[in-house]
Protein backbone atom coordinates (compact mmCIF):
# COMPACT_ATOMS: atom_id res chain seq x y z
CA UNK A 1 0.00 0.00 0.00
CA UNK A 2 1.15 3.52 -0.76
CA UNK A 3 2.30 5.72 2.08
CA UNK A 4 -0.50 7.57 3.85
CA UNK A 5 -1.12 11.25 3.18
CA UNK A 6 -0.66 12.17 6.80
CA UNK A 7 1.02 9.90 9.31
CA UNK A 8 1.24 11.03 12.91
CA UNK A 9 3.59 8.84 14.92
CA UNK A 10 3.74 8.91 18.70
CA UNK A 11 3.02 12.65 18.87
CA UNK A 12 3.36 14.24 22.28
CA UNK A 13 2.27 17.86 22.58
CA UNK A 14 2.76 19.07 26.10
CA UNK A 15 2.08 22.42 27.70
CA UNK A 16 4.19 23.87 30.44
CA UNK A 17 2.10 25.60 33.09
CA UNK A 18 2.82 26.96 36.53
CA UNK A 19 1.41 23.77 38.04
CA UNK A 20 3.47 21.41 35.91
CA UNK A 21 3.40 19.72 32.53
CA UNK A 22 -0.04 19.26 30.94
CA UNK A 23 0.13 16.25 28.63
CA UNK A 24 -2.62 17.33 26.26
CA UNK A 25 -1.53 14.94 23.52
CA UNK A 26 0.45 12.03 24.88
CA UNK A 27 1.66 9.61 22.27
CA UNK A 28 -0.98 9.79 19.55
CA UNK A 29 -0.51 7.86 16.35
CA UNK A 30 -2.95 8.07 13.49
CA UNK A 31 -2.88 8.19 9.73
CA UNK A 32 -5.08 9.42 6.93
CA UNK A 33 -5.03 8.12 3.38
CA UNK A 34 -5.72 10.15 0.28
CA UNK A 35 -9.40 10.92 -0.16
CA UNK A 36 -10.35 9.36 3.14
CA UNK A 37 -12.57 10.84 5.85
CA UNK A 38 -11.23 10.12 9.30
CA UNK A 39 -13.35 10.90 12.33
CA UNK A 40 -11.67 11.86 15.58
CA UNK A 41 -14.05 11.67 18.53
CA UNK A 42 -13.89 12.11 22.27
CA UNK A 43 -15.17 14.35 25.02
CA UNK A 44 -14.07 17.94 25.49
CA UNK A 45 -10.53 18.08 26.75
CA UNK A 46 -9.37 14.84 25.18
CA UNK A 47 -6.70 16.42 23.01
CA UNK A 48 -8.58 16.31 19.71
CA UNK A 49 -8.15 19.98 18.95
CA UNK A 50 -4.54 20.05 20.12
CA UNK A 51 -3.79 17.13 17.79
CA UNK A 52 -5.38 19.00 14.88
CA UNK A 53 -3.54 22.23 15.64
CA UNK A 54 -0.28 20.35 16.06
CA UNK A 55 -0.54 19.13 12.46
CA UNK A 56 -0.54 22.75 11.24
CA UNK A 57 1.82 23.79 14.01
CA UNK A 58 -0.64 26.33 15.36
CA UNK A 59 0.39 25.60 18.95
CA UNK A 60 1.86 28.60 20.76
CA UNK A 61 5.40 27.77 21.80
CA UNK A 62 5.93 28.41 24.65
CA UNK A 63 3.93 27.23 26.58
CA UNK A 64 3.38 24.36 24.15
CA UNK A 65 6.12 22.00 23.06
CA UNK A 66 6.46 18.90 20.89
CA UNK A 67 7.92 16.45 23.33
CA UNK A 68 8.26 13.54 20.93
CA UNK A 69 6.90 12.07 17.75
CA UNK A 70 6.70 12.82 14.06
CA UNK A 71 4.09 14.41 11.83
CA UNK A 72 4.80 12.95 8.42
CA UNK A 73 3.09 14.82 5.60
CA UNK A 74 3.56 12.75 2.45
CA UNK A 75 6.63 11.29 4.08
CA UNK A 76 8.12 14.62 5.21
CA UNK A 77 8.29 15.47 8.90
CA UNK A 78 6.63 18.81 9.65
CA UNK A 79 7.96 19.26 13.19
CA UNK A 80 11.38 20.70 12.30
CA UNK A 81 9.96 23.15 9.72
CA UNK A 82 10.00 26.88 10.49
CA UNK A 83 7.11 29.33 10.04
CA UNK A 84 8.05 30.30 6.50
CA UNK A 85 8.09 26.69 5.35
CA UNK A 86 4.90 25.93 7.25
CA UNK A 87 3.17 28.86 5.52
CA UNK A 88 3.78 27.13 2.20
CA UNK A 89 1.96 24.06 3.47
CA UNK A 90 -0.89 25.87 5.21
CA UNK A 91 -3.94 26.37 2.95
CA UNK A 92 -2.07 25.03 -0.10
CA UNK A 93 -1.74 21.47 1.22
CA UNK A 94 -3.50 21.35 4.59
CA UNK A 95 -6.34 23.68 5.52
CA UNK A 96 -8.36 23.94 8.69
CA UNK A 97 -11.78 25.25 9.61
CA UNK A 98 -12.72 26.07 13.17
CA UNK A 99 -15.66 25.63 15.44
CA UNK A 100 -16.74 29.26 15.70
CA UNK A 101 -17.89 30.60 12.34
CA UNK A 102 -19.21 33.75 14.03
CA UNK A 103 -15.75 34.94 15.04
CA UNK A 104 -13.49 33.24 12.51
CA UNK A 105 -13.85 36.02 9.95
CA UNK A 106 -12.19 39.40 10.30
CA UNK A 107 -14.95 41.97 10.85
CA UNK A 108 -13.16 44.82 9.04
CA UNK A 109 -12.81 43.15 5.63
CA UNK A 110 -15.37 41.92 3.12
CA UNK A 111 -15.59 38.16 2.76
CA UNK A 112 -14.35 38.53 -0.82
CA UNK A 113 -11.23 40.32 0.43
CA UNK A 114 -10.56 37.54 2.90
CA UNK A 115 -10.93 34.72 0.41
CA UNK A 116 -8.94 36.69 -2.17
CA UNK A 117 -6.15 37.23 0.37
CA UNK A 118 -5.67 33.49 0.70
CA UNK A 119 -5.72 33.00 -3.07
CA UNK A 120 -3.31 35.89 -3.62
CA UNK A 121 -0.96 34.64 -0.95
CA UNK A 122 -0.56 31.19 -2.43
CA UNK A 123 -1.22 31.42 -6.14
CA UNK A 124 0.56 34.62 -7.20
CA UNK A 125 -2.51 36.12 -8.82
CA UNK A 126 -3.46 39.76 -9.13
CA UNK A 127 -6.09 41.16 -6.78
CA UNK A 128 -8.63 41.29 -9.59
CA UNK A 129 -8.16 37.66 -10.58
CA UNK A 130 -8.22 36.67 -6.92
CA UNK A 131 -11.56 38.44 -6.43
CA UNK A 132 -13.01 36.51 -9.39
CA UNK A 133 -11.67 33.36 -7.75
CA UNK A 134 -13.31 34.40 -4.48
CA UNK A 135 -16.69 34.78 -6.19
CA UNK A 136 -16.23 31.37 -7.80
CA UNK A 137 -15.51 29.85 -4.42
CA UNK A 138 -18.64 31.42 -2.90
CA UNK A 139 -20.65 30.01 -5.76
CA UNK A 140 -19.13 26.60 -5.14
CA UNK A 141 -20.22 26.58 -1.52
CA UNK A 142 -23.77 27.46 -2.62
CA UNK A 143 -24.00 31.05 -1.49
CA UNK A 144 -26.64 32.81 -3.57
CA UNK A 145 -25.64 35.91 -5.56
CA UNK A 146 -21.90 35.28 -5.18
CA UNK A 147 -20.84 38.25 -7.35
CA UNK A 148 -22.68 40.60 -5.03
CA UNK A 149 -21.99 38.80 -1.78
CA UNK A 150 -18.19 39.00 -2.16
CA UNK A 151 -18.53 42.70 -1.33
CA UNK A 152 -20.46 42.01 1.88
CA UNK A 153 -18.98 42.07 5.37
CA UNK A 154 -19.09 39.11 7.77
CA UNK A 155 -21.80 40.71 9.92
CA UNK A 156 -24.13 40.46 6.93
CA UNK A 157 -23.94 36.65 6.95
CA UNK A 158 -25.63 34.15 9.25
CA UNK A 159 -23.68 31.50 11.17
CA UNK A 160 -24.26 28.76 8.61
CA UNK A 161 -23.35 31.10 5.77
CA UNK A 162 -20.17 32.15 7.54
CA UNK A 163 -19.17 28.51 7.93
CA UNK A 164 -19.69 28.17 4.18
CA UNK A 165 -17.43 31.18 3.69
CA UNK A 166 -14.83 29.56 5.96
CA UNK A 167 -15.03 26.39 3.88
CA UNK A 168 -14.64 28.48 0.72
CA UNK A 169 -11.55 30.14 2.21
CA UNK A 170 -10.08 26.84 3.32
CA UNK A 171 -10.66 25.19 -0.06
CA UNK A 172 -9.62 28.14 -2.22
CA UNK A 173 -6.19 26.63 -2.82
CA UNK A 174 -7.43 23.05 -3.22
CA UNK A 175 -5.69 21.49 -0.22
CA UNK A 176 -5.15 17.75 -0.08
CA UNK A 177 -6.34 17.58 3.50
CA UNK A 178 -9.06 19.55 5.23
CA UNK A 179 -9.03 19.49 9.02
CA UNK A 180 -12.49 20.33 10.31
CA UNK A 181 -12.35 21.11 14.01
CA UNK A 182 -15.93 20.65 15.20
CA UNK A 183 -17.27 22.50 12.17
CA UNK A 184 -20.91 22.07 13.10
CA UNK A 185 -20.93 22.33 16.88
CA UNK A 186 -21.95 26.00 16.92
CA UNK A 187 -24.71 25.55 14.33
CA UNK A 188 -28.28 24.33 14.68
CA UNK A 189 -29.24 20.86 13.49
CA UNK A 190 -30.61 21.60 10.01
CA UNK A 191 -27.63 23.82 9.19
CA UNK A 192 -25.29 21.12 10.53
CA UNK A 193 -26.67 18.67 8.00
CA UNK A 194 -26.23 21.19 5.18
CA UNK A 195 -22.63 21.92 6.13
CA UNK A 196 -21.76 18.21 6.39
CA UNK A 197 -23.38 17.62 3.02
CA UNK A 198 -21.39 20.50 1.56
CA UNK A 199 -18.14 19.09 2.94
CA UNK A 200 -18.99 15.72 1.42
CA UNK A 201 -19.70 17.38 -1.93
CA UNK A 202 -16.42 19.34 -1.82
CA UNK A 203 -14.52 16.21 -0.90
CA UNK A 204 -15.84 14.37 -3.95
CA UNK A 205 -15.16 17.36 -6.16
CA UNK A 206 -11.56 17.97 -5.08
CA UNK A 207 -10.67 14.44 -3.98
CA UNK A 208 -9.24 15.66 -0.72
CA UNK A 209 -9.06 13.87 2.60
CA UNK A 210 -10.93 15.14 5.64
CA UNK A 211 -10.01 14.88 9.30
CA UNK A 212 -13.31 15.48 11.03
CA UNK A 213 -13.02 16.30 14.70
CA UNK A 214 -16.25 16.11 16.61
CA UNK A 215 -17.91 14.89 19.74
CA UNK A 216 -21.16 14.10 17.98
CA UNK A 217 -21.20 10.34 17.35
CA UNK A 218 -24.09 10.74 14.91
CA UNK A 219 -21.98 12.97 12.66
CA UNK A 220 -19.21 10.36 12.68
CA UNK A 221 -21.56 7.53 11.75
CA UNK A 222 -22.88 9.39 8.75
CA UNK A 223 -19.79 10.90 7.23
CA UNK A 224 -16.60 9.01 8.03
CA UNK A 225 -14.98 5.81 6.89
CA UNK A 226 -12.65 5.29 9.81
CA UNK A 227 -12.77 6.55 13.36
CA UNK A 228 -10.18 7.27 16.02
CA UNK A 229 -11.50 7.52 19.56
CA UNK A 230 -9.38 9.68 21.85
CA UNK A 231 -9.44 9.83 25.60
CA UNK A 232 -7.25 12.00 27.84
CA UNK A 233 -4.60 12.63 25.21
CA UNK A 234 -4.39 9.07 23.97
CA UNK A 235 -5.94 6.98 21.22
CA UNK A 236 -8.04 4.28 22.88
CA UNK A 237 -9.66 2.72 19.84
CA UNK A 238 -9.32 2.92 16.09
CA UNK A 239 -11.65 1.11 13.72
CA UNK A 240 -13.58 1.27 10.45
CA UNK A 241 -16.84 3.06 11.16
CA UNK A 242 -18.98 -0.08 10.80
CA UNK A 243 -16.85 -2.10 13.19
CA UNK A 244 -16.78 0.72 15.71
CA UNK A 245 -20.53 0.98 15.97
CA UNK A 246 -21.15 -2.76 15.51
CA UNK A 247 -18.49 -4.08 17.81
CA UNK A 248 -17.03 -1.38 20.07
CA UNK A 249 -14.28 -2.93 22.18
CA UNK A 250 -13.13 -0.17 24.48
CA UNK A 251 -15.43 0.55 27.45
CA UNK A 252 -15.10 4.27 26.67
CA UNK A 253 -16.28 3.80 23.10
CA UNK A 254 -19.12 1.64 24.35
CA UNK A 255 -20.09 4.38 26.77
CA UNK A 256 -20.00 7.02 24.03
CA UNK A 257 -22.21 4.94 21.78
CA UNK A 258 -24.67 4.18 24.59
CA UNK A 259 -24.96 7.86 25.31
CA UNK A 260 -26.31 8.67 21.82
CA UNK A 261 -29.99 9.57 22.17
CA UNK A 262 -32.00 6.98 20.24
CA UNK A 263 -35.40 7.95 18.97
CA UNK A 264 -36.37 4.34 18.16
CA UNK A 265 -35.36 2.69 21.42
CA UNK A 266 -36.78 4.84 24.15
CA UNK A 267 -40.07 5.62 22.46
CA UNK A 268 -43.00 5.36 24.87
CA UNK A 269 -40.85 4.26 27.78
CA UNK A 270 -39.43 6.19 30.67
CA UNK A 271 -35.89 5.37 29.61
CA UNK A 272 -33.06 7.47 30.93
CA UNK A 273 -30.30 8.51 28.57
CA UNK A 274 -27.12 6.81 29.65
CA UNK A 275 -24.02 8.78 30.42
CA UNK A 276 -20.48 8.02 31.43
CA UNK A 277 -20.06 8.95 35.09
CA UNK A 278 -17.34 11.41 36.01
CA UNK A 279 -15.24 13.69 33.83
CA UNK A 280 -11.98 13.54 31.90
CA UNK A 281 -9.11 13.39 34.42
CA UNK A 282 -6.62 16.20 34.71
CA UNK A 283 -3.85 15.82 32.17
CA UNK A 284 -1.46 17.29 34.69
CA UNK A 285 0.77 14.45 35.83
CA UNK A 286 -1.80 11.71 35.14
CA UNK A 287 -1.72 8.55 37.28
CA UNK A 288 -0.05 5.41 35.91
CA UNK A 289 -2.23 2.85 34.18
CA UNK A 290 -5.25 3.20 31.97
CA UNK A 291 -6.55 6.78 32.13
CA UNK A 292 -10.12 5.63 31.84
CA UNK A 293 -9.80 3.30 34.86
CA UNK A 294 -11.46 5.69 37.29
CA UNK A 295 -14.64 5.83 35.18
CA UNK A 296 -14.63 2.33 33.74
CA UNK A 297 -17.36 -0.11 34.74
CA UNK A 298 -15.10 -3.11 34.11
CA UNK A 299 -12.08 -1.81 35.99
CA UNK A 300 -9.72 -4.45 37.47
CA UNK A 301 -6.56 -4.15 39.59
CA UNK A 302 -4.29 -4.61 36.54
CA UNK A 303 -5.79 -1.50 34.90
CA UNK A 304 -4.03 0.83 37.31
CA UNK A 305 -0.62 -0.84 36.91
CA UNK A 306 0.40 0.00 33.36
CA UNK A 307 -0.98 1.79 30.31
CA UNK A 308 -2.45 -0.86 28.01
CA UNK A 309 -0.85 -0.70 24.55
CA UNK A 310 -2.87 -0.32 21.36
CA UNK A 311 -3.24 -3.79 19.86
CA UNK A 312 -4.97 -5.05 16.76
CA UNK A 313 -8.04 -7.20 17.51
CA UNK A 314 -9.35 -7.46 13.97
CA UNK A 315 -7.99 -6.13 10.62
CA UNK A 316 -7.87 -2.36 10.97
CA UNK A 317 -9.42 -2.44 14.43
CA UNK A 318 -7.11 -1.51 17.30
CA UNK A 319 -7.96 -1.18 20.97
CA UNK A 320 -6.00 -0.04 24.00
CA UNK A 321 -7.65 -2.15 26.69
CA UNK A 322 -6.64 -5.31 28.48
CA UNK A 323 -10.13 -6.77 28.20
Amino acid sequence: MAEPLLDIRGLKTWFKTDDGMVRAVDGVSLSIDRGETLGVVGESGCGKTVTARSVLKLIDMPPGRFEAGQILWQGRDLIPLDETEMNKIRAREIAIIFQEPMTSLNPVYTVGDQIAEVIELHQKLSRKQAMVGAADMLKLVNIPNPERRVHDYPHQFSGGMRQRVMIAMALSCQPKLLIADEPTTALDVTIQAQILELMQEMKERFGMAIMLITHAMGVVAETTQRVVVMYAGKVVEEAPVGALFGDPRHPYTQGLIRSIPRVDRSAGRQARLESIPGTVPSLLDPPPGCRFAARCRYVMPACTQAIPPLKEVAPGHKVACIL
Binding site: L58, N87, S104, N106, V108, Y109
Partner: peptide
Protein backbone atom coordinates in the same frame (compact mmCIF):
# COMPACT_ATOMS: atom_id res chain seq x y z
CA UNK B 1 -6.43 35.30 20.67
CA UNK B 2 -9.40 35.88 18.35
CA UNK B 3 -10.43 33.07 16.06
CA UNK B 4 -10.06 35.12 12.89
CA UNK B 5 -6.40 35.72 13.65
CA UNK B 6 -5.90 32.00 14.22
CA UNK B 7 -7.83 31.29 11.02
CA UNK B 8 -5.68 33.68 9.01
CA UNK B 9 -2.54 32.11 10.49
CA UNK B 10 -3.83 28.63 9.66
CA UNK B 11 -4.30 29.75 6.06
CA UNK B 12 -0.69 30.78 5.73
CA UNK B 13 -0.53 34.45 6.68
CA UNK B 14 2.88 35.52 7.94
CA UNK B 15 3.32 37.19 11.31
CA UNK B 16 3.78 40.64 9.76
CA UNK B 17 0.62 40.18 7.71
CA UNK B 18 -1.28 39.04 10.80
CA UNK B 19 -0.21 42.09 12.78
CA UNK B 20 -0.54 44.74 10.07
CA UNK B 21 -3.41 43.26 8.10
CA UNK B 22 -5.61 41.59 10.67
CA UNK B 23 -4.91 42.78 14.22
CA UNK B 24 -4.01 46.45 13.77
CA UNK B 25 -7.11 47.47 11.75
CA UNK B 26 -9.27 46.04 14.52
Amino acid sequence: EKEFVEAARALGASKVRLVVGHILPN
